[in-house]
């Protein structure tokens, strides 16, 4: 066990590293070293990290297979966009409103569906995700199938960075708390957990709500970065994209989800130049990873400083 002094030291080092990353990228943007294309991919990367980490909480840690993540993202995106566009709210309240609305949607959907297990739950969440999309498609006030066009671009690097860091910290700390133990116990064996007095439904709904809330946050950032949102953007294929990141990174590994989100974003961007074979290469990589690494890149392990020190033979 590291002493509390050591913990403080590591805490400070972490802060310095984060501040370093932030300042470096901010500097590169300010000096135009990162052109618009890289900035867009950086934004996609941050949004994908938030989505993957939040879905990982539901799919990886709680063990509930949800296929409706894009639906929650849509709720966050639409609510936030309506807030800034029609109600003239500033950006931060809009983000919060979007996240809360998505969390509420998570609650509404979670309560009836989380009684289901496995495949049944997957199908039910898939259906709910589509329902959200179809409802949005039929509300004329938010543009119907054409969506909301001309959203102000308010998402900037500080917001993206802060949102990503907050997402990771909140979810990581949740998992390491007693709530997190309960959540993981649900995944490991629901019956045993219930026998030990864990209110499984409560913890499942809570994890679902928190995951949905962060998906809403990602949606709000997305809407204010890409100028336009339409219901089609949030179809079930988007949910699968996020699921791919989580499975690729390893169900139940936050660092895995982060690495996979970065990997998939870079891969998609790189393969844009080969439109004809893009999908083949993308699929091949997924198949290869699944054959040789069925538990995902990191399995359910986390990449921590311990991992590194073991690797280089040092003792932690």
């Amino acid at each position: 066990m590291p002493s509390s002094k050591r913990q403080w030291l590591w805490f400070l080092i972490n802060i310095v590293i984060l501040a370093g990353i932030f300042t470096l990228v901010q500097y590169m943007i300010a000096t135009r070293m990162l052109n618009q294309y890289y900035q867009i991919n950086l934004a996609s990367m941050c949004i994908n990290i938030i989505l993957a980490v939040s879905l990982n909480l539901i799919n990886g840690f709680t063990g509930q297979l949800s296929l409706g993540h894009a639906g929650f993202m849509a709720v966050g995106a639409y609510v936030a966009a309506v807030c800034t566009k029609s109600m003239d709210l500033s950006f931060i309240p809009a983000i919060i409103a979007g996240s809360l609305a998505a969390a509420l949607a998570g609650l509404i959907i979670g309560v009836p569906t989380l009684r289901l297990r496995g495949d049944y739950l997957a199908i039910a969440t898939l259906g709910f995700g589509e329902i959200i999309r179809v409802i949005l498609q039929n509300i004329e006030e938010v543009g119907g199938p054409a969506g909301i066009v001309g959203i102000e671009r308010l998402t900037t690097w500080p917001y993206l960075f802060l949102a990503t860091v907050i997402t990771i910290i909140v979810i990581q700390n949740l998992i390491n708390s007693s709530y997190g133990r309960a959540i993981i116990s649900v995944r490991e064996d629901e019956v045993a957990a219930e026998m030990m007095g864990v209110n499984t439904t409560w913890y499942k709904v809570m994890a679902f709500m928190i995951g949905a809330g962060f998906a809403g946050l990602a949606g709000a950032l997305f809407a204010h970065y890409f100028y336009i949102i339409k219901p089609d953007t949030f179809n079930f294929l988007k949910s699968f994209d996020i699921l791919v990141m989580v499975v690729l990174g390893g169900l139940g590994s936050t660092t895995g989800a982060i690495l996979a989100a970065i990997f998939i974003t870079v891969l998609t961007a790189y393969l844009q130049a080969f439109p004809a074979i893009r999908m083949i290469i993308y699929a091949m990589i997924l198949i290869l990873v699944m054959i040789y690494r069925p538990q995902g890149l990191l399995g359910n392990k986390e990449l921590t400083r311990k991992t590194f020190s073991r690797f280089w033979g040092g003792s932690a």
Binding site: Y37, S44, G147, F226, T233
Partner: peptide
């Protein structure tokens, strides 16, 4: 739509004279 924007930024950075596409109005926006 987000990929369309991403692609545009990529093409512009390559020094194109003009872009043809996208087809759908939302992606153009």
């Amino acid at each position: 739509t987000d990929e369309a924007m991403n692609v545009s930024a990529d093409l512009v950075s390559k020094g194109i004279v003009a872009q043809i596409g996208p087809l759908v109005s939302g992606a153009v926006a």
